[in-house]
């Protein structure tokens, strides 16, 4: 904190503005939660009575359970594969220099910046051509493409903090490259690997557009939500929304705790 620019009024106005920004960002999440317990069909103020009727309606809908199952299967498969691929790419970036590395990194990091509509169309056309569209794992193939870059970025962040002498020291002590990987690199990167697993699951869990294009009949939960959106207003979306928010917030919070946990203080001898 600097002592310059001290004008308490402006400082407080700025702090209030930050609070207003957070209110804007979290308002839709909070509203979804509040109105999922509202007995009125059309959301408005004042609130109607407390009711769990929409939760019961959602729980009784077999389509929702199918969607949830598809989402879970895809989420686990995608996050496992994306984390493995992303770790490999991050380690490649950390350890090697080679001709064409810029292109390699671009291929590894660019996919999430391509609009999902375009990715969806390209994947649908391509997968139809090679006979893989509309299968239960079409979504998984496509999601790995956009999730692996997140995993790579997270693991890369962690590997950039490793003491580069450590791996070399292991080699000098007689470890093979594989042993150094197993006993030095992997343990050091473990929090980031877990965080990457959670984040990629959250990304896959929330991705709806590509899934909507390529899923055919095996719709994931967000694709169901998209279907609901095109239909009538229904408080059931608030219920699904609350569930989706809780799930992805849990994953993202876990990932952040793993990544930014302060290191335990070193015991002083």
């Amino acid at each position: 904190m600097t002592d310059v620019n001290r004008n308490p009024l402006i400082d407080w106005a700025l702090r209030l503005y930050v609070l207003a920004c957070f209110a804007f960002v979290f308002a839709p999440i909070a509203a979804s939660f509040v109105f999922s317990f509202n007995e009125d069909r059309f959301p408005s103020l004042p609130l109607g009575g407390f009711s769990t009727e929409w939760y019961r309606a959602v729980a009784a809908d077999p389509l929702v359970w199918d969607g949830l199952w598809n989402t879970l299967v895809a989420g686990v498969a995608v996050s496992l594969a994306a984390t493995v691929l992303g770790f490999g790419a991050a380690y490649t970036d950390y350890r090697y220099r080679f001709f064409g590395k810029t292109v390699y990194l671009a291929l590894a990091l660019i996919p999430p910046t391509i609009p999902v509509v375009i990715m969806g169309l390209a994947m649908l056309a391509f997968l139809s051509r090679i006979g893989l569209s509309g299968l239960s794992w079409s979504v998984i193939l496509a999601h790995i493409v956009i999730c692996a870059p997140f995993a790579m970025a997270i693991v890369r962040l962690r590997l950039s903090q490793i003491d580069p002498d450590l791996e070399a020291a292991a080699w000098n002590l007689g470890a093979s490259e594989w042993q150094a990987m197993a006993h030095v690199i992997l343990p050091f990167a473990r929090p980031a690997i877990l965080a990457a697993f959670f984040i990629t699951m959250a990304v896959s869990f929330d991705e709806f557009a590509i899934a909507w294009f390529v899923s055919g009949l095996n719709e994931t939960l967000p694709v169901k939500v998209l279907g609901f959106l095109q239909g009538q207003v229904s408080p059931r979306i608030n219920v699904i929304g609350t569930f989706v928010f809780l799930a992805s917030m849990t994953l993202v919070i876990l990932a952040q705790l793993l990544l930014f946990r302060r290191p335990a203080p070193e015991p002083n001898p």
Binding site: F26, P28, I29, S32, A202, D206, L229, I237, N238
Partner: peptide
């Protein structure tokens, strides 16, 4: 929020 369903937030 960056990793939390954009679709549902828009609905909200």
């Amino acid at each position: 929020p960056f990793f939390t369903s954009y679709l549902v937030r828009v609905y909200s």
